[in-house]
């Protein structure tokens, strides 16, 4: 069905205002849009790993979630939602429940790529009918911008600070969408926040309504951690895609599909220049680092094109 933006935006809001996320937070923009992909008649249980989103959206006694919601701990969002989803089947089987429920959990990259990786892997491998949404802002933002395995190379974080003899994080970011795709789950997709949110919405809808486990990796910029003016978020997301830093793709039953190919791939500097965490890369003596960065983006992009049989 064609994407009807006006209709989608007219759906009821399932994430209420009054939460305490920072002004301009990318995470809640992503969460709002994912929830919009639910059919209005369907009920949902939302899970959440500990992180910014959790401490801000359910600060006792105020929940921002219109649906049922459970936060358990930092590293167990996958397992917790597994239990909820299994209870649903048990109660359905026993005739105790008629309604249709969908199961969606949100976790930052800390709770997803790192401390919650085992729990996520288990939930995916067991193929529970749920969606795990990672709002990836590339560092442990809730505790104050420490590096994660999702942090991009050379980013300045509080545990990979740029200093006299350091250019930020030395390692490349882990490609979690690829790792989850290797679990052979029915649906994996990578997306971010773009104009009408068509890409995010459609992927969320497929993730929610594909039976079995699904994983969405959504790049969700953090103005504080990335050091940019909060109002610039949409431009930054666009540049991430146009530079092929954050490619848009989906993996449907093991088939890799590129969902967007820039007409003209922009240089990585265009993305990096927008954020204070990469400021040091633009010193004259660091030209080599930019070249290294471009080479890494190119290598990953070529690899993705190969997977997508392009």
């Amino acid at each position: 069905m064609a994407y009807n933006f006006r209709e989608v935006m007219s759906k009821p809001e399932r994430l209420a205002p009054g939460h305490r996320m920072c002004a301009g937070c990318g995470g809640t923009i992503a969460a709002r849009m994912v929830l919009r992909a639910l059919k209005p008649g369907d009920k949902a249980v939302i899970g959440n790993a500990t992180g910014c989103m959790e401490v801000s959206t359910f600060m006792y006694p105020y929940t921002a979630w219109e649906d049922s919601y459970m936060h358990n701990a930092f590293e167990n969002a996958g397992a917790t939602l597994s239990g909820i989803e299994t209870a649903y089947h048990a109660l359905k089987k026993k005739g105790k429940l008629d309604e249709t429920y969908k199961f969606i959990t949100f976790g930052g990259d800390g709770g997803t790529y790192d401390i919650g990786f085992q729990s996520l892997s288990g939930a995916m491998e067991r193929n529970h009918d749920l969606v795990y949404v990672c709002y990836d802002n590339g560092a442990y933002m809730n505790t104050g911008i420490q590096r994660s395995s999702a942090t991009p190379m050379f980013a300045d974080t509080t545990t990979t600070p740029v200093g006299k003899v350091s250019n930020g994080k030395m390692q490349n970011r882990k490609d979690l969408a690829q790792i989850i795709a290797d679990h052979d789950v029915p649906y994996v997709a990578q997306t971010t926040l773009l104009t009408t949110m068509k890409d995010l919405y459609e992927k969320a809808e497929k993730a929610i309504y594909t039976p079995g486990a699904a994983f969405l990796n959504v790049m969700a910029p953090c103005p504080r951690g990335w050091r940019y003016d909060a109002s610039d978020i949409m431009e930054i997301c666009k540049l991430a895609v146009e530079t092929c830093y954050w490619p848009l793709f989906e993996v449907v039953d093991g088939q890799w599909i590129l969902t967007y190919e820039p007409k003209k791939k922009l240089p990585i500097e265009d993305f990096l220049r927008t954020q204070g965490r990469f400021k040091h890369l633009f010193k004259p003596e660091n030209e080599g680092l930019l070249e290294q960065y471009q080479a890494e983006v190119d290598r990953r992009w070529e690899d993705l094109l190969f997977r997508c049989s392009k």
Partner: peptide
Amino acid sequence: LLCTPCCPDSS
């Protein structure tokens, strides 16, 4: 409506 999905605060 292009402004509406971009609001982090459902406002």
